[in-house]
Design a protein around this nucleic acid. Structure first.
Lengths: 120, 120, 120, 120
DNA sequence: GTGGTCTAGACCACC
DNA sequence: GTGGTCTAGACCACA
């Protein structure tokens, strides 16, 4: 996995894990890979991986059984979905639209780009 | 002005200034407000404002006349426009689309949001 | 049985067993449930239950007859009682009192809470 | 400062800082000592001190101004007070009372101990 | 100067 | 085996 320079690695791991849960690869009450395994897989220090787990636990998306490992919270997927959806609609999209106007990109252009994206 | 927690303040100032130029409020070869004025207006440390000016100068969007002030490069607006447009289409949009799919947001939803945004 | 997140499970089992002995449910020289039974009852790993038994044996509160099971030491109840009483008065109460002062809880409040507790 | 063996150091630092705020030594919107200073003062690694700050920021008890330092949230003191008070009354006291009964300590004994504590 | 992130490596408690 | 904490030391971005 390649990491972006601008964003902390542990947050990129959070995103990566969120995607796993969101897409159902890791499902409710299922045990997810151990901190060490993720660290090895992504080639980062275990502490860094641990921070991602910490973060997700604080947001009640995963939980821990001591000595056993981490598990996806029953409502974890829904929680991420809702959270991300709201953020997308309320924060990201308005920015995008404002930017489109400044750059002279129309709704039609947008739709066309979307079609392109889908056929790729 | 309120600053986002995650993005460096000086980059948010860069964005704010870019908007001014892009929208024509600050036009070619026009003198823009002094570093100190911007710092006061936005309530930030002058060093922080200075960094924004530095950044824009490095990208050849503004230039400096010593002892007088900063000015918009003749092609500043076009430069931003082109640069931003490419970045928007190549980097930002694809991300947005991928995310939409993950969150179950359709093209129709997108268009509807756009209409909402325009009527606001 | 529900376990507290912060305290090791085996110590919570120790507390639970101590209560049994202290309240006389398990009395002197009486055979107590097997490690396996406790593990099943409390839904924990047998190793974890075993650790609790170990701990109590080290404190001479229970003893083991090989092949037969664990028993309460003749003076087990008294031993716990004395040990706990000293700890309670010397270590726990002072802490509680200091905290009460910081939180603005008076002796009267304390007594009232105690009455509430007893009537429950 | 001496640290307890059983509790993580960073949580003991959290307690120590909470006390400072609760007792008004650090008040609303006041800048608190830098992470490094606390680390030096308490003779711990800066990372460990940092964890305490992180924790308190997550609980909205302190906030950060980038490049400047950490400050006490306007409602920080009240927040700790309320949180701790509830925890004390709902979680800690009932335990204490149950234990008192098992140990044969009466309300009168309790009051007497409290008097002793106050005269010390 | 401030905080923030990351690595490397260690040690420990717990299951 | 699991996670959790801690240290030491480095580097960086930000104000």
């Amino acid at each position: 996995m390649e990491f972006n320079q601008e964003k902390p690695i542990y947050l990129q791991i959070v995103d990566w894990m969120s995607d796993k849960i969101l897409s159902g690869i890791w499902s409710s009450d299922e045990r997810i890979p151990s901190v060490r395994d993720v660290a090895m897989l992504l080639q980062v220090n275990p502490n860094t991986a641990m921070r991602a787990y910490d973060h997700l636990q604080n947001e009640n998306i995963i939980y821990n059984k001591r000595g056993i490992g981490y598990f996806v919270e029953p409502e974890g997927q829904a929680k991420i979905m809702e959270h991300e959806k709201r953020r997308f609609l309320m924060e990201i999209l308005p920015d995008i639209f404002t930017r489109m106007e400044l750059l002279g990109i129309s709704a039609d252009d947008l739709n066309e780009e979307y079609k392109k994206h889908k056929t790729q």
